[in-house]
Design a protein around this nucleic acid. Structure first.
Length: 1037
RNA sequence: GCGGAUGUGGCGGAAUUGGCAGACGCGCUAGAUUUAGGUUCUAGUUUCGCAAGAAGUGAAGGUUCAAGUCCUUUCAUCCGCACCA
């Protein structure tokens, strides 16, 4: 066993071993409960960053824990491999996108594998591979057949940098592309859409079924879908046989409509415009069109608009009202027209004030005088009582909505209507590196689906990437021109490729059967594994990817291909990883941390004091930390522990090298604890039988002989000179092994050399060494064969013995106690009977029995207890340690389920480690239980070190195949509890009381306690509150 | 503007849902070991106070024997949406 923790060596070793043993393969045995643990797959940019690392480590801890709990776990990984960077690399550097992408995948995969993630790599997918996008295209055709994929001419978001269009979701609130950051332009183009709006209601309603999703993600989706309930009302245009339809959520205010506003782009605009207004209206339309979205929606901008000269009749009041056009009315939403109710809508109020349009109050707060209509200072948007509303006067406005709709319906000028903000998903991209949309445009047959047998529509290889003009596909005539699959006449391929969000909207369906070349997914297998039990990824996909995936699942369900409603049962959105960032507030420049003295951050050039803060890691801010550097320096286990410990998973994580060091130190402490334990429990002459025994390939007779050697002792056997040849052989083996182990003992000894009791120990060690050597030399005299070995063994043993008994004694008092007992045991009786437990039989390395079982077996196997009597009654120290062990099991188990509090889980591991190293009962079986439990609990967090230590203490199977420890509730019960004494609700002190004391007893103890006496003396006790197990509170006069 | 979340030591963060606030770690202080630095170990570390004690979870009120936790008001920060009719 190495005496130093060397992550580089053990991590590589175990990663290789696990891979060889196929430990991470997904089990096929379907009798166990399934658990599908999924991380959002990465875009293969070529370098792994901390965000990825955090994401996958979180998923891996969950997966490993579930595996130990007896689940069959599917934890796959893949690549979201289509997309623009590959194409840009082709344009800039002439490297083919496929080559660039696959190189990056190889590179990132190698980095990923160093993290010790228990991923089943046999299910790896890459969306850019033809055997994947074949099925992406097949799915598109499913949508096409269902009438959910269609083309239309639409004003689309055009990204001038990426030279492609974008979906609405992919444009941020400042009108910039989610990818390139470019200001998006509006263009009219014929494009492909998926009819996500058909599913708006379901996508909204089913959010309620997603109990395992963060509220804020659900809220963001709900807002994005943006359902409003109201009415569609029609206003007949004066002098035309045409009506203007409006959508309103406030039909109850319809009597207060004093004008109608059309969006400037509205097709009715030119038709309602009177000739004298025409020039002005056209100019206004021009002006608005030339404006960017950003300018048009700029804040606090006065609302601009002009009258068209046209008029409509309000069908309710029969009065004529003017038609205006204004920039604040959006053509894309509702009907592109609104009814102006200045009295009860803040925007309309503002507009009417500016344009001096009449304001008609039709709703007043309930209880207010309805006789007068007060001059409004602002729109009254709250519910109230309807006035000036014909037959509806006096009605509550909330009820009025229904009544008005009913009336409008009856009269034929309106109906109830639900409106969504969500629009159809624009999926066309005018780029090469994506899945081609598998349709062919035929002059006679129209738009024809590529037959399934012709899939995939492969991307042509010989393409030029100029970055200019049309998409490379559109420029390649040999690819574009094909015969029509149905009539055979010359036709053209669709040259748009699909939005890459399509690729990622179904990849989770493929993992259960990732290599299937007959189907995109096998419904039986996918239905078995889906839905994903735990999905982990970044919040940036709260709307885009998650909404699209939900939509896909619902469509496929309706096509009868799958049988579940939602793809992701539980969702964890992990926080960002932030790096320490230095910014010069004067120059606005970011300074690399390497150039800054963190104690006194100053700009190395100008000397200005720097702003110090944490921000998402990025190249331009020089605040990134490369995962490979951390792995090289500390290893994956430390990186994992740090990431898990530093912050709860959903919060942002501030990268701090000092804290990384802290985790490294912790793992070193665990290493030392287990190594010391192992050395400590190794017998005087380690029994060669142990390992053999584990393998079970020795004869029963021989085993018995060895047990005899262990139970009596070697020296006395030697003294008796009455040995079988088998025993001689065993002794020789043990001597040899002890010789080999000697450097370890010596190393241990020197490690501990620095402890304060070294002098005392040394003297004693020397004395014992001398004593033993003399005694042994005596024996050796008659056994010349063993002479040199025995001298060495004698010295080695005494050294180790001294170390164990004296150096480890934590206090002076304990030391003298130990010396006394050792004297009595070894010198007093002049017999070298084994010290307690050094020859204790290692508990079975087979999958751990339940704790209670183990306790009995180890108690039985242990021939001598620390106490002299034979009954295995646990000492108070043992009870306390057991409570610590089982508290850790309980807490960590809870932390790994429920809310995923990995940070507190790690802190519980630290506590257990601390409890074990402080324990005074290191010879007890409870201590063995503690060490083994610690390693098992550590396994999901730091898999490599746990595995190494697990093997070091004598196990031959993997720690990762062990059962998760069970809590023994009895162990949690303490004999004594700390009772808090309060007076008037203030804590005045604590006392120790028996745990089983009842209310009365507790009150009695408390009343009698010194603390209480001090504070309640001479005062009248009015009331006593007893909370069993917790506190007693005295209320005094 | 609308909606949501969060405010706890020098820092990251804990607190069986009303019952000892500050677990665990970082940092810091002192001591031991070391030629030195690092590592390691020991002790301490919310604030004020020599102490007894007092104050203390953004602020102000309230409920309660008891409030970080519940209620009311308010401030700050962050996130999402933003003329959505």
């Amino acid at each position: 066993m190495e005496s130093r923790y060397n992550p580089a060596a053990i991590e590589a070793k175990w990663q290789q071993t696990w891979a060889e043993q196929g430990l991470d393969q997904t089990p096929t045995d379907s009798s166990k409960p399934k658990f599908y643990a999924l991380s959002m797959f990465p875009y293969p940019s070529g370098t792994l960053h901390m965000g990825h690392t955090r994401n996958y480590v979180i998923t891996d801890v969950i997966a490993r824990h579930k595996r130990m709990q007896g689940c069959r776990v599917l934890q796959p990984m893949g690549w979201d491999a289509f997309g623009l960077p590959a194409e840009n690399a082709a344009i800039e550097r002439g490297i083919h996108p496929a080559k660039w992408t696959y190189q990056n995948i190889a590179q990132m995969k190698a980095q990923l594998q160093q993290l010790g993630l228990s991923i089943d790599w046999s299910r790896e997918v890459a969306t850019c591979s033809p055997d994947y996008y074949k099925w992406t295209q097949w799915l598109f055709l499913e949508f096409f057949k269902a009438g959910l994929a269609y083309q239309k001419e639409a004003a689309v978001n055009w990204d001038p940098i990426d030279q492609t269009v974008l979906a609405n979701e992919q444009v941020d609130n400042e009108g910039r592309s989610w990818r390139s950051g470019a200001q998006v332009e509006r263009k009219m183009l014929r494009q492909w859409f998926l009819k996500i709006t058909d599913y708006a209601e379901q996508l909204l309603n089913d959010l309620d079924t997603l109990a395992g999703w963060p509220e804020r993600v659900k809220l963001m989706q709900a807002n994005w879908i943006g359902k409003s309930v109201g009415a569609y009302l029609e206003f007949p245009i004066v002098g035309m046989d045409e009506k203007i339809g409006v959508f309103t959520t406030r039909p109850d205010t319809v009597y207060g409509v004093t004008y109608i506003v059309l969006a400037p782009e509205h097709p009715l605009t030119p038709r309602v415009t009177t000739s004298e207004r025409q020039a002005e209206v056209e100019a206004f339309i021009q002006e608005v069109a030339s404006q960017s979205e950003l300018e048009r929606t700029a804040e606090d901008k006065p609302k601009r608009g002009i009258p068209t000269g046209g008029k409509v009749i309000n069908p309710f009041t029969k009065s004529e009202i003017p038609i205006w056009i204004a920039d604040y009315v959006l053509y894309e939403y509702g009907t592109g027209a609104v009814m102006g109710v200045p009295a009860h809508d803040t925007r309309d109020f503002q507009f009417a004030k500016e344009k001096q349009l009449p304001i008609e109050v039709v709703i007043v707060p309930s209880g207010e005088n309805t006789g007068e209509t007060p001059e409004l200072k602002a729109a009254y948007t709250e519910p109230g009582i309807m006035i000036n509303s014909g037959n509806f006067d006096g009605m509550a406005s909330t009820a009025g909505k229904e009544a008005i709709i009913e009336y409008a319906q009856k009269e034929g000028f309106g109906k109830a209507r639900v409106q969504y903000r969500l629009r159809d998903w624009l999926i066309s991209r005018q780029r090469y590196w994506g899945a081609p949309i598998p349709v062919i445009h035929c002059p006679s047959c129209g738009t024809v689906a590529v037959p399934e047998s012709d899939l995939p529509v492969q991307l042509p290889e010989d393409v030029e990437f100029s970055g200019r003009g049309l998409s490379p596909l559109a420029q390649l005539d040999s690819w574009v021109n094909v015969p029509c699959p149905s009539c055979g006449t010359a036709a053209k391929r669709e040259t748009d490729t699909m939005d890459t969000f399509i690729d990622s909207s179904w990849y989770f369906l493929r993992y259960p059967d990732a290599k299937n070349d007959q189907q995109g997914f096998d419904p039986a297998k996918t239905n078995d594994w889906m839905p994903v039990d735990q999905y982990v990824g970044g919040i940036e996909h709260a709307i885009l990817h998650l909404l699209y995936s939900r939509f896909f699942v619902k469509v496929l369900r309706d096509r009868g291909l799958i049988n579940f409603n939602e793809p992701f049962q539980r969702l964890l959105t992990q926080g960002m990883v932030q790096g320490i960032t230095y910014k010069n507030p004067v120059t606005g420049k970011y300074i690399p941390p390497a150039q800054v003295n963190s104690a006194e951050p100053k700009d190395p050039e100008t000397g200005d004091s720097l702003e110090v803060f944490y921000e998402k890691m990025s190249k331009s801010k020089y605040n990134g930390v490369a995962p490979e550097d951390v792995l090289a320096k500390y290893g994956a286990d430390t990186a994992r522990m740090f990431i898990l410990f530093k912050a709860p998973p959903e919060k942002d994580l501030e990268w701090d090298d000092a804290d990384v060091e802290g985790q490294f130190r912790f793992l070193n402490r665990v290493w030392r604890l287990v190594t010391e334990y192992q050395a400590h429990r190794q017998p005087l002459l380690p029994s060669a039988g142990e390992e053999e025994e584990a393998k079970g390939d020795r004869s029963a007779a021989a085993t018995k002989d060895v047990e005899n050697i262990e139970k009596q002792n070697i020296v006395s056997l030697l003294l008796s000179k009455d040995l079988s040849s088998q025993q001689w052989w065993q002794i020789w083996q043990q001597v040899f092994k002890a010789l080999l182990d000697l450097p370890n003992y010596v190393g241990e000894f020197f490690d501990s050399f620095q402890q304060s009791l070294v002098t005392v120990a040394l003297i004693l060690a020397a004395a014992i060494a001398a004593y033993l050597t003399v005694a042994l030399l005596d024996v050796i005299h008659s056994i010349p064969l063993l002479e040199p070995s025995f001298q060495l063994v004698g010295l080695g043993y005494t050294t180790w013995f001294a170390y164990r008994y004296f150096l480890r004694a934590p206090t002076r008092r304990e030391l003298s106690e130990k010396v006394q007992s050792v004297k009595q045991k070894y010198l007093g009786t002049n017999s070298l009977a084994q010290p307690a437990n050094t020859l204790e039989v290692i508990p079975s390395p087979q999958p751990s029995p339940t704790i209670t079982e183990k306790q009995t077996t180890s108690a039985e196997a242990t021939s001598t207890q620390p106490s002299t009597d034979n009954a295995p009654t646990p000492t108070p120290q043992e009870k306390e340690l057991r409570r610590a062990i089982h508290t850790a099991i309980k807490e960590i188990t809870e932390d790994l389920e429920g809310d995923y509090q990995f940070n507190t889980g790690v802190s519980e591991l630290m506590k257990l480690n601390n409890a074990l190293s402080d324990a005074t009962c290191k010879d007890s079986p409870v201590y063995v239980e503690g060490i083994e439990t610690l390693i098992r609990l550590l396994a999901p967090f730091a898999p490599h070190i746990a595995e190494e230590l697990w093997h070091n203490i004598g196990h031959t199977d993997s720690v990762h195949t062990q059962e998760w420890s069970q809590v023994d509730l009895d162990a949690l019960v303490a004999d004594e509890i700390t009772l808090v004494i309060q007076v008037m609700g203030k804590t005045r002190g604590t006392i120790q009381v028996p745990a089983q004391a009842d209310r009365e007893a507790l009150e009695h103890y408390a009343r009698e306690s010194e603390v209480a006496q001090r504070f309640i003396q001479g005062k009248e006790i009015k009331k006593v509150i007893v909370v069993p197990g917790k506190l007693v509170n005295f209320v005094v006069a």
